[in-house]
């Protein structure tokens, strides 16, 4: 039900502006300018990358099923609209679903790593507490392993204090969740001679469809990170686990390089020449930078009148569609300038 709710929510934000593929790309966290821009444009930042391993076929099947149940209505090839029945369904069910926990774009990488480190840390500490050092780690991830090893080495001498502290923190943190959510999280943990549950087992125990389980676990992780950020002084160990994880949205690598060159005072065509890239690619980067950078100097790329004209068109046409906007403004105004203004207005709205 959570997967359905997430798909419907995304689609109801996107309306009929994009094909259903846009929803899929947001959910799987596709790192393309278009998808990042969509995430901002339609206020779907929190769902970005929340179903990373969602199979395209599974997704398509889900969409078909939602259409058959009249929750989605197909309006054009690959374009869907959430029906009034669908909106009703969302309103009715969202209450008991952890929709508000998601913080996809901000926790994109951090959430994943935080969960892995925590799982491995609990397994390592509980086993070493029992003088058992030959256990099979449940997490097979180089960064998580390195981090836990370093942490363990550095804290070996106060080992007996660590577990009670970690217990206390987890207890208090989990108290902020529903019993069902806390139960799911605890059942997933592996300790000494006690291995955590698989997705299938969690699905059985909590009567969930299997596809919902990873979404629940991710939602809980994201909410944990949010709570930890708000009240970091209360949670020493847990805060430490996430302290070196970047929790701000990241630019794609290529856009970051463009940003650096822009700051050094290069023009678009200079950057394109230096990097042997097309100017259009650099324009894409600039739009991406504008989405993140609150102090982005839009005035470098258009005069005041152009800016006002585009804003006027957006307000009057009540649309975010590029093509319609382009038709509504003077011919000299470029697609790039319109996209830039859209990026800015979406930032300001937040």
């Amino acid at each position: 039900m959570l997967l359905e709710a997430v798909i419907l929510t995304c689609n109801s934000h996107i309306k009929q502006d994009r094909t259903i593929a846009a929803t899929y790309h947001v959910l799987t966290g596709k790192r393309s300018i278009q998808t990042l821009q969509d995430a901002h444009l339609y206020a779907l930042e929190s769902f970005f990358g929340t179903a990373k391993s969602l199979d395209k076929q599974v997704f398509d099947k889900k969409v078909d099923q939602l259409a058959r149940e009249n929750l989605l209505r197909q309006t054009a090839p690959s374009v869907y609209q959430v029906s009034s029945q669908g909106e009703e369904w969302l309103k009715h069910h969202s209450q008991q679903l952890p929709m508000a926990y998601f913080n996809g774009l901000a926790c994109h990488e951090a959430g994943n790593l935080f969960a892995k480190r925590l799982l491995l840390l609990v397994q390592t500490l509980t086993n070493s507490q029992n003088n058992h050092f030959s256990f099979i780690p449940v997490v097979d991830h180089q960064d998580a392993e390195n981090w836990v090893r370093q942490f363990y080495q550095a804290n070996r001498f106060q080992e007996n204090k660590l577990l009670p502290q970690l217990y206390k923190e987890l207890y208090h943190l989990l108290k902020r969740f529903s019993d069902r959510e806390a139960g799911m999280f605890v059942d997933r943990l592996t300790g000494y001679k006690n291995y955590g549950m698989s997705r299938f087992q969690l699905a059985e125990k909590y009567s969930l469809p299997e596809a919902d389980v990873p979404l629940y676990l991710l939602a809980i992780t994201h909410q944990m990170l949010t709570l930890l950020e708000e009240e970091n002084t209360k949670y020493r160990v847990l805060t430490y686990i996430r302290s070196d994880l970047q929790q701000s949205p990241m630019l794609t690598n290529s856009a970051a390089i463009t940003q650096r060159l822009l700051h050094q005072g290069n023009t678009i065509s200079q950057i394109a020449a230096k990097r042997r890239l097309k100017e259009n690619t650099i324009y894409d980067h600039v739009v991406e930078i504008a989405l993140y950078d609150a102090n982005f100097p839009t005035e470098h790329f258009m005069d005041r009148n152009t800016h006002l004209e585009i804003i006027h068109a957006i307000n009057q046409k009540k649309t975010q569609k590029l093509k319609q906007l382009k038709e509504a403004v003077h011919d000299e105004i470029s697609y790039f300038q319109i996209r830039l203004v859209l990026a800015r207005t979406n930032r300001i709205k937040k």
């Binding site: 391993s53 291995y195 955590g196 549950m197």
Partner: peptide, 24 residues
């Protein structure tokens, strides 16, 4: 009861395998 096959994510495979070893 659980299932196990090569298409499962790593964490699930290890936990199911070890649960069985561990009589869980």
């Amino acid at each position: 009861i659980a299932f196990y096959h090569g298409g499962m994510e790593q964490l699930d495979r290890i936990s199911v395998q070890q649960q069985f070893m561990n009589s869980q």
